[in-house]
Design a protein around this nucleic acid. Structure first.
Lengths: 214, 214
DNA sequence: CAGTCATATGACCGACCGGTCACATTCTAC
DNA sequence: GTAGAATGTGACCGGTCGGTCATATGACTG
């Protein structure tokens, strides 16, 4: 947690600093993100930074936490229908996740990096990854009781597949559809009216029914 | 390519150096891998290193190239049956890939890091990634003509899914089965006599038939 | 032997890093 | 006003980095 001094800062200055710090950690991994660059760009003295944060790691943890909060909030706001089919829910989840990526590309970047690389093997990240797996495992268990997922499927394995595909799908789809970035940010929905929407549904369809001929 | 001086080195010394360099790049990402540490550990002077390689990037590229060669050779040696079913071939591919990971964990680590993180966005890596995608896309096309893959499936999307799952599956399975590392290295087959073998088949089965109830 | 050439060496360079600290400035309360 | 606390500042520290270079070593030539 940042020091009290940081929260005593004028809202505007604090936000400005956070934006710059976020950009730095989004465009460099932990080791290469530079406090010196951040303070230079934010127009504050290096000493001041250390009156806000104990060290580099604290700033990093704080940014991750902010990102997790924002994403959780994003995924919670329009709660999906209660007794949705599990694959429909999965589709909704993936779709909303991509919308979050579009709305907050930097937050997504830093989160992705944190989960992917063992750069910062803090207990925090292991915990985050584990909870993501648990979440998907519960989803699969629920799908089984619903009867929409084959009871013979290994739950953890299915959770791994869901997690992996959903995590990577957004980046892949974005790399495939060359839409104007400004357009995308202007309205998340436009992305799903594009050819990408079909690819989305196809991915879920594959997880549900496979690629094999039937 | 290393300088000629490097290849004039006694075989033993060159191998020793490569082992140490490999360990360094396997345990640190590109930015944090240290030439100073490598030369200290290898017992050579820093200046000597720069008589072998033009710079850090050249060593890195060389290690990647060596790794790619070894993996290609590994995957080529026991060529699978010619007219294998596409999913059977996929299973063989994933299995053999994991065996390679077990046999050369450091090479796998450095390759994985290179593909995953945008750390070194050299044209070399983009090319490697693209060719991997192309490979899987061709596999899917072949599966379609074979009749084992649904003709309506988007080929590139299927390639993405294959590539993603296969890339991540090894690490996941290894994290699930807590086998003695020495045992694993001693005999690659033992891994597939373990519970992991079932998870393997299940993964391929899911890609072929999906998780949904039928 | 001398001359030459490939190779080995490690002190050294400039750059950058995260983090500190003595001091300057500003704010608050009396 | 003025005392004192809170906050801001940037030169500075020790350390590490990738990379250089003058010099030493030793092997091969004639």
């Amino acid at each position: 947690m940042p020091k009290e001094t940081f929260f005593n800062l004028p809202e505007e200055k604090r936000q400005h600093f956070l934006e710059i710090a976020l950009a730095e950690f989004a465009s460099h991994d932990y080791a290469n993100a530079s406090i010196s660059r951040i303070v230079a760009q934010a127009g504050i003295a290096k000493g001041s930074f250390y009156q806000y944060f104990a060290d580099k790691a604290e700033l990093y943890r704080y940014l991750l936490e902010l990102g997790a909060q924002q994403k959780a909030q994003f995924l919670a706001t329009p709660p999906p229908e209660a007794d949705m089919d599990i694959f429909a829910y999965l589709a909704w989840l993936a779709q909303t996740g991509v919308q979050f990526e579009l709305a907050h590309p930097q937050l997504s970047q830093i989160g992705y990096r944190a989960v992917k690389s063992g750069d910062v093997p803090s207990e925090l990240m292991q915990q985050a990854r584990a909870s993501a797996y648990t979440f998907f495992a519960q989803l699969v268990a629920q799908g089984k009781t619903q009867g929409s997922i084959d009871a013979q499927i290994d739950e953890e394995l299915a959770a791994f597949i869901f997690h992996t595909i959903i995590t990577e799908l957004g980046g892949y789809l974005l790399s495939r559809v060359e839409e104007n970035a400004a357009d995308r940010l202007a309205d998340g929905r436009s992305f799903f009216d594009s050819p990408a929407a079909d690819l989305f549904n196809q991915t879920i369809h594959i997880l549900q029914f496979g690629m094999g001929t039937r």
